[in-house]
Amino acid sequence: MSSESLNSLARRVLLVVALGVLAIPFVVPTIWMVAASVKPLPEIFASPPSLWTDHPTLSAYSEAFTFQPFARQYFNSVYIALLVTLITLVVSSLAGYAFARIRFPGANALFVVVLIGLLVPSEVTIVPLFQMFKRAGMINTHWPLILVTALAAPCVLATFIMRQFFIALPAELEEAGRLEGLGRPGIWWRICVPLAKPALSAVAILTFLTSWNLYLEPTVYLTSPELFTLPQALTRFTDAYGGEMWNTQLAAATMTVLPVLIVFIVAQRQFVEGLAHSGLK
């Protein structure tokens, strides 16, 4: 009996060690980024590599703001991601609810049409979309980033998640709502949406991250630095001759990553559990 518990203790230690080693590539890059961003330039490539510096400096941080309109770019990314998330929440919970709970002619066919939106890579549509937005005079504005993300592929994924969630709701809830005199919009808003918090939070997280990470679209649609978003701005820390500004880039990257990471760590349970209950299983 005691040898068995010793055995299980050894197994447990082994498990933790194995996971610890496996976690290195997941954790070290972020720590390295933060550490390198406060190093003087020549130390970034010092050998052997070290996470420590004797001469920490924040000059790269201030440089990030003077070299590009970084504060503005930060704001752009935040407001676009929030707006996109908000629109997606409304659009996807409406559509997901309808596809799950309302019977109307052509529902299945239309659902397939919508799902196609999930399969078309954005690289296929970007050239024609560019021409469409050009005719609408919306090149070099944030509109393409907002509209396409909030209504096309990322939103389709959201609609799918919401549909999966609403399908599982017991029908009695709706009956109760109807007895209280609620119409469909009322049932959707008063009864189903409040119950859908886990799915909604999964949608919110996924959509926010998609918008936050967009790279191809801003690269194509935006040409003025004050309209840039963060991912695009991060790759533009090169001096007037194309030379890379390593530490400034790392400082900007750190500022991009840390706030989201902190929000995640604080709310990690909601993050992970929201995703786990997304119905994507």
Binding site: P225, T238, D239, G242
Partner: peptide
């Protein structure tokens, strides 16, 4: 002022 690294692509896109 457009970023040097992809000035050509940006100008062409404009």
């Amino acid at each position: 002022s457009l970023p040097f690294a992809d000035y050509n692509t940006t100008l062409t896109t404009q």
